[in-house]
Amino acid sequence: MSIVTVRNVTRRFGSFTAVDGVDLDIGQGEVVGILGANGAGKTTLMKMILGLLRPTAGSITLFGRSPGRETRRRIGYVPQDLGLWRDLTADENLQFSAGVFGVRPSPAPEGSGGRLVGDLSLGVQRRVAFAAALQHQPDLLILDEPTSGVAPLARARLWEEIRSRAEAGTTVAVTTHYMDEARQADRLVLMAGGRVIGTGSEADIVGSLQAVVVATDHWDAAFTALDEAGLAATMAGTDLRVPGAETAAVEAVLHRAGISAAVTASSATLEEAMVVAGTP
């Protein structure tokens, strides 16, 4: 069953088209990761799904109806800045959002209840924000970079909670540009320039895109030569990678600079695919 149905949705701001003819279906219990650079249209799309913005053209249905007050009751939303009142305690924050939804407040995590949110560590603040978003038992959870700044084990535990909600039937949409988070999704949707340009697994998104790998004892000289030639090299430990480039072009630059290197082609990473897609 489709929980979120987006059909040919466009959103313009004046002459600027932020979202351009997007189609998207998210099924019940699915965890979908929405990826893209700044300006790709992720946030505008999420705001339309939340009912905060209306599409200029096209339609969105949530649980079979138009986004609005009734659908908002069924959504749990954790914005990137968490949306907590820093000068209220964790308990007061939970009571406030429980009051908004007319439900009983959940207990605050780990003895944080009586403490001001502004005094809590970021990891605990994130757990308070999750508790606040989950206490009305939403059917759809919308998360914006949910585990940014959290230590790996704490991040793993937060994802364990998100996954267990999904297994219980909650649908989850996550926007992120971190690969550690993207890997937790069942399905990825890559946006660029307001459009969906790829969907599926990590392998589906990367497709046939390659990165040229340069192994050399003179990585610094190789980096400088490639950079000056307009080939955007990135570091990968002691190797260099040039996503989206042709092997022959890289070899030619290195040859001209008199640098000996082993040059091979490798499948691009998800992040490299995002960079190539997001580079005008």
């Binding site: 700044n38 540009h177 610094d220 992040e271």
Partner: peptide, 21 residues
């Protein structure tokens, strides 16, 4: 790179590499 999108992040890492070189 915290809170920075992948395209700018890639540019930042190229600056970091340039400083190291």
């Amino acid at each position: 790179t915290t809170g920075i999108d992948p395209v700018s992040r890639s540019d930042l890492w190229r600056l970091i590499a340039a400083a190291a070189t």
